[in-house]
C-alpha cells in the first residue's frame, strides 16, 4: 500500500518536473552548472573504473581462452564486447548512482529542510521543475558521453594488458577489437545509459524532495537513493537487454 502511494507521488512529482521552465535563460544557466557537476566532475572516476575493468576483462578472457585452436584475436573481440555491452553502461551507471545520485538527494533534501524549496514556491516558481529538470536533462546528455569515454578507456585498459604481458600481442588485441564491429551495440548501450540516467536523477530528486525533518533524514534519503536506483538499474538492465537484443 505504502509502495503504491510512493509510486503515485513519484509520478506526480515527475509531472511537475517535466514542464516548461519559467525562464529559459535561468534554465540554461542551471543546465550549464549541472553538466559540469554531473558530467565533467565524473570523468576521473569513470576513467579509473573503466581502465581497471578493461584490463581485468582482458586478463580473464585471455586465461580462460587458452585453447591453441582459438585465435588470439578472440581475446580483443570478447573484451570489446563485454566493455561496450555491459561494463561501460551498467557498471559505470552503478558508480554514478553512488556518486551523482547521493549528492543530488542530499542537495535537494537540504534545500527542503532549510526552507529553500518553500522560498521558491512562495515566489510562484515550480520548485520541482526548477531544481530537478536541469539535472535530468544534463544527465541524459552527459551520461552517454561519459559511457563512450569509458568504452575507450576500457579498451585502452585491455590494450595495456596486451602490451605489458605476454598473453597476446598488441596487434592481435587491436585486430580483435576491430573484428565484426556492429555500431548497434554502442547504440544499445547509449539507450541503456540514458534510461539509467533517468532512474538515477529522478529517484534522487524524489527522495530529496520528500525529506522532512533534519540532517538524519537527509542522510537516509541519500542512502535510499543509492539502494533503490542501483536495484532499479539492475532490473532495467535485464529488461532492456531482453528487449533490445532479442
Amino acid at each position: 500500500m505504502n509502495l503504491i502511494k510512493h509510486i503515485g507521488s513519484y509520478l506526480l512529482l515527475m509531472r511537475a518536473v517535466i514542464s516548461r521552465p519559467d525562464r529559459w535563460r535561468i534554465f540554461f544557466q542551471r543546465l550549464k552548472t549541472e553538466l559540469y557537476t554531473i558530467g565533467v566532475d565524473s570523468f576521473g572516476i569513470v576513467a579509473l573504473v573503466s581502465l581497471f575493468s578493461g584490463a581485468v576483462v582482458a586478463i580473464q578472457v585471455a586465461y580462460n581462452i587458452d585453447n591453441p585452436l582459438l585465435p588470439k584475436t578472440l581475446i580483443g573481440f570478447s573484451t570489446r564486447q563485454m566493455i561496450v555491452l555491459e561494463f561501460a553502461p551498467t557498471m559505470v551507471s552503478l558508480i554514478l548512482a553512488g556518486k551523482v545520485g547521493s549528492s543530488i538527494a542530499s542537495e535537494i533534501g537540504t534545500m527542503r529542510i532549510s526552507g529553500q524549496i518553500d522560498a521558491l514556491e512562495i515566489m510562484g516558481i515550480n520548485p520541482a521543475n526548477f531544481l530537478i529538470f536541469p539535472k535530468l536533462v544534463a544527465a541524459v546528455f552527459i551520461n552517454p558521453a561519459l559511457i563512450i569515454f569509458g568504452m575507450y578507456i576500457g579498451i585502452i585498459g585491455g590494450y595495456l594488458i596486451a602490451s605489458f604481458t605476454n598473453l597476446l600481442t598488441p596487434d592481435e588485441f587491436i585486430s580483435g577489437v576491430q573484428l565484426d564491429f556492429e555500431s548497434f551495440t554502442v547504440f544499445y548501450s547509449l539507450i541503456k545509459t540514458a534510461v539509467f540516467a533517468i532512474i538515477i536523477v529522478t529517484i534522487a530528486g524524489f527522495q530529496g524532495y520528500i525529506v522532512s525533518g533534519g540532517s538524519i533524514q537527509v542522510g537516509k534519503a541519500s542512502t535510499k537513493t543509492v539502494v533503490y536506483s542501483s536495484v532499479l538499474i539492475i532490473l532495467f538492465n535485464l529488461l532492456l537487454t531482453q528487449l533490445l537484443l532479442t
Binding site: 537540504t110 532549510s114 526552507g115 529553500q116 522560498a119 512562495i122 515566489m123
Partner: peptide
C-alpha cells in the same frame, strides 16, 4: 505571489 515577499525562519537563501 509576485506581489508578496517572505522572510523565512532560517533565511532560506539559495545556496
Amino acid at each position: 505571489r509576485k506581489e508578496l515577499g517572505m522572510l523565512f525562519q532560517g533565511g532560506a537563501l539559495f545556496d
